[in-house]
Each structure stands twice: as C-alpha cells, then as structure tokens.
Amino acid sequence: MRILIWHVHGSWTTAFVQGPHTYVVPVTPDRGPDGLGRARTFDWPGTVVELPPERLRDAGIDVVVLQRPHEHALVERWLGRRPPMVYLEHNAPHGNVPDTRHPAADLPGVPLVHVTHFNRLMWDAGSAETTVVEHGVVDPGPLWTGEIPHAAVVVNEPVRRGRTTGTDLLPAFARAAPLDVFGMGTDGLAAHLGLPAGRCRSRELVQRDLHRAMARRRLYVHPVRWTSLGLSLLEAMHLGMPVVALATTEVTEAVPPDAGAVSNRIDVLTRAVRDFVADPARARAAGQAARAAALARYGLPRFLDDWERLLKEVTR
C-alpha cells in the first residue's frame, strides 16, 4: 500500500512509518509546512519516500492520512482525484470546549481518528465516523540510570505556550529539584521564570540524544495542563523513568499508580519529586512499573496492528 502523509508530527510519524507500507511525504523546495519531506532529526526507514507535489498524480497513492483541514484541498489539487482518506487528529480541542466542532465533521466519507479517548470525547465530530487508535512508541529501551538527581521536563516553546504547557508551574517544581528542560524554544527559560540557572537548565537535543539525556535524570515531570497525551511522557515511561504528572486529559489512563505520582495538587506532586530524588531505589521501582505499563498499552506492535486494520477497512 502507498500512503500519502504530510510530515506534521515527527514523533508520531516515526512510529507510523515503521509499518509494512510505502509512505509518501510531500517535499517542496523551501521545505515549508506543506513540503517538509523526510525527517532530519528522527530515524525513518527507507520506505519513506519524498515526492514533490507535481509527481503525486502518478505516484499510485492508495490512501491518504490527513492531519490538517487544508490538506483535503491539497489532495484534490495535487492528485486530481479523491482516494480513500482518513483524518488523524493529534490534539485536544481548543476554544469553546466541549463544543468545539472538528473540521472533519464536514468531510463526508472521511473517518476521524483520534489518538486518545479523551480527545474523542471532547471534540464535536457531528455525524462523522470516529474511532481511536492510541499512541504507539518505538521502544528506546530501558535506558534509565537516574544518576543525575534532577527532574527532566520535555516541552516545546514553553514561554510562548505558557499556561497550556504548565510553564508557570515550573518554579514550584524547581524548588523541589533542579529541572533540566529539553525542547525547542527553551532558550532563556530560567531568566523568564526568574529562576537561578542552577535550578532550571534548558537545551534542545535531537531525538536519539534526548532519550539518553532524559534517562540520566532521576525522574520525569510532566507539567502540561492541556494536551492530547504527550509522547514525551510515554517515551519517558518506555525509558524506565518514574513520572510525576498533572492529572489532566488522558494522563490518568496512561500512568498507573505504581509508576509515579499523578495529581492536580501541586503539593502532592512536588513532594513526590523530592521523594524520588531522595530515594533512587524507589525511583527505580516506579520506573520499572512505568515501563511495563507503557509497553503493554503503547507498544509499537499494537499500534501498527490497529492502523493496519483501519487502513484495510477504508481501502477495501
């Protein structure tokens, strides 16, 4: 099967392209949002093929995975036809929740696929056929050592996104343990929060280096208020890290009690951070439970099997 998909979400796509198909990603000279091409910071197999828009009509596309509202028009313009399509929604709704209407509600014959049951519940999909294919993660292995008694945080553009990503909560966590914040747009974060550099360090790393750096930290903190389900959280669990997270969106489904601490009480969460930093053996046990839970629910084989069934249904 030849699947047309735009490079929109690097971490999610890295799991998706591990399947048995050919994955065609549009590429434009400027490598802009509609033609980013193959990933440069993720490891993608040779079955991911870049093609410019003018060659897509003859590419033999069997099915299209839409991820943004305007891609539907691009398909008709670039392919000159309407092959089977599904619309993959990565995000929880913003705006007038829970009355936010999904763009795919007005696309007849295009199933809407959510990555969490929370998202399916919160989006107004109208009469669109909806389903859930939960995340899958390429297993980085049980790399946790916890040798650095800091908390790792992974978030992109924390200053711009502010309360959405829980950036305002970081000072409270930094009082419990030094924070190492990884992600794009994290430069100057400590100064923005008024924190000493020793309590909040930030940098951007490519994926393969990020996992190794995370795994050296004692625990993972997930301060995000409103997101779908952060893949960095699931990756931390795969690494064998204990997690401390807000009990928002899908987190309570993903993190079992013995894998760390999940709460909406900041005092409970910061106390858990202190406890894990002070007790490496406890951190190790919680991290092992986190890894077992992540492999069982968010393992790559289940994810690929679910997508295989769905793609066969829409193309038959």
Results as ranks from 00 to 15, higher is better:
residue 62 D to S: 12
residue 210 L to C: 04
residue 62 D to H: 13
residue 88 L to P: 02
residue 88 L to K: 05
residue 184 M to H: 14
residue 281 A to K: 06
residue 73 A to E: 08
residue 297 R to C: 06
residue 100 T to C: 11
residue 272 A to C: 14
residue 41 T to C: 03
residue 155 V to N: 10
residue 73 A to C: 00
residue 6 W to M: 10
residue 163 R to Y: 08
residue 180 D to V: 11
residue 146 G to M: 02
residue 35 G to C: 11
residue 171 P to G: 09
residue 231 L to C: 05
residue 248 T to I: 05
residue 208 R to D: 13
residue 200 C to Q: 03
residue 201 R to A: 12
residue 2 R to S: 09
residue 134 E to C: 12
residue 178 P to Y: 01
residue 42 F to C: 03
residue 268 V to W: 05
residue 87 Y to W: 14
residue 141 G to F: 02
residue 142 P to M: 02
residue 88 L to S: 02
residue 297 R to G: 07
residue 288 Q to V: 12
residue 247 A to P: 03
residue 259 A to K: 06
residue 234 L to I: 05
residue 292 A to C: 14
residue 89 E to R: 06
residue 85 M to K: 14
residue 13 T to D: 03
residue 222 H to V: 01
residue 3 I to L: 15
residue 6 W to C: 11
residue 304 L to I: 04
residue 224 V to A: 15
residue 234 L to N: 01
residue 98 P to G: 07
residue 29 P to T: 04
residue 33 P to R: 01
residue 152 A to W: 01
residue 220 Y to I: 00
residue 235 E to F: 03
residue 90 H to E: 10
residue 257 P to F: 14
residue 31 R to D: 03
residue 151 A to Y: 03
residue 268 V to P: 00
residue 58 D to T: 12
residue 150 H to T: 15
residue 3 I to T: 11
residue 220 Y to K: 00
residue 265 R to L: 09
residue 173 F to W: 09
residue 92 A to Q: 04
residue 304 L to P: 06
residue 97 V to W: 08
residue 189 L to G: 12
residue 126 G to Y: 06
residue 197 A to S: 12
residue 25 V to K: 03
residue 255 V to Y: 11
residue 256 P to E: 12
residue 281 A to C: 06
residue 253 E to P: 00
residue 166 G to A: 07
residue 250 E to C: 02
residue 202 S to F: 08
